[in-house]
């Protein structure tokens, strides 16, 4: 443990600066969301979040997260396995490519699917001829969401699995376990907290993505509106209380994510600390 050696003045000063900064830039927006949502009382809040279009938006958001997160879990584990357990040329390049969605503007993420699947896009005429809807329908929203959440799980697992090395797996395999058994019994328990951590952030982003989804959604009430888009629509209908009410559900989700994440972190540190020697 670190000894608290600095002079108290500096120490309290720094703590105060940090806390004040976080309060101003993080806590205040959060408080504003809940404050505005409840500004007309709990009844207005309740009716805003149980209105059919709001429920449809909630359902769609859950559906999109429910599909995109598991797909990215599978991809994330596969990518981490390939990258962490094997040596091959071009590894850095592959990691950079996996990172790419972090630094691509969400708007560009939406645009690329319009260029690909839109009626004026490369595959548009073919899709239309076969009556397949991607853009302005759920699949487009799904693709855009998968794109922006692409790196979360992989990025969490790659350093973790690299650090853990191959020894446990090799021991298990030499004792006669199959590859799948080894993964299930040895690797997965080792990475479960890290995995959960990645999944939480992946899920939060999947439910909250706005820019990319906005480009491909078409904003059909009750059909292609996710929760963040529904917030925007309500806002544009001068229905500010309802907008903030739906927004507060998303903020609540963020808070739950943070609480779960703190728990995971605590277990994770505990787990690593325990296994560390």
């Amino acid at each position: 443990m670190h000894r608290e050696n600095s002079r108290p003045a500096a120490r309290y000063g720094l703590i105060a600066v940090a806390v004040l900064f976080l309060a101003l830039f993080l806590v205040l927006p959060l408080a504003a969301v809940f404050g505005e949502a409840l500004s007309k009382g709990a009844t207005a809040f309740g009716s805003a979040v149980t209105e059919p279009d709001a429920l449809a938006a909630i359902r769609l958001t859950l559906l999109v997260a429910g599909i995109s997160v598991p797909l990215n879990i599978v991809f994330g584990i596969a990518a981490a396995w390939a990258i962490a357990k094997f040596d091959f040329p071009g590894k850095s390049l592959l990691i950079s490519f996996i990172d790419l969605p972090f630094s691509v503007s969400p708007v560009v993420a939406g645009l690329i699917y319009v260029l690909l699947f839109g009626a004026q896009g490369w595959l548009g005429p073919w899709l239309r001829a076969h009556d397949i809807e991607i853009i302005f329908a759920v699949p487009g929203i799904l693709l855009a969401t998968i794109f922006v959440t692409f790196p979360f799980v992989a990025r969490e697992l790659i350093p973790l699995m690299s650090e853990q090395g191959r020894d446990d797996e090799e021991a298990s395999l030499s004792l006669g376990a199959s590859g799948f058994q080894t993964f299930w019994r040895v690797t997965l328990p080792n990475i479960r907290w890290g995995l959960l951590y990645g999944v939480l952030l992946c899920n939060a982003r999947a439910m909250g993505e706005f820019g990319a989804v906005s480009v491909v959604s078409g904003h059909l009430r009750g059909i292609t509106n996710t929760m963040p888009l529904h917030v925007e629509i309500l806002y544009n209908e001068y229905n500010f209380v309802a907008a903030f009410a739906v927004a507060s559900l998303l903020a609540l989700l963020a808070l739950v994510t943070l609480v779960l994440k703190s728990i995971v972190e605590w277990r994770f540190d505990y787990h690593r600390g325990g296994a560390g020697h």
């Binding site: 806390v19 976080l22 993080l26 969301v33 963040p228 917030v231 927004a247 998303l250 943070l258």
Partner: peptide, 23 residues
């Protein structure tokens, strides 16, 4: 405080946008 630091990762950006505007 530690948990709060990650709030921007978890809070949807559009929600952050209207909240910051309201402030």
């Amino acid at each position: 405080v530690n948990a709060l630091v990650d709030l921007p990762f978890a809070l949807p950006t559009a929600v952050a946008g209207i909240a910051l505007t309201a402030i």
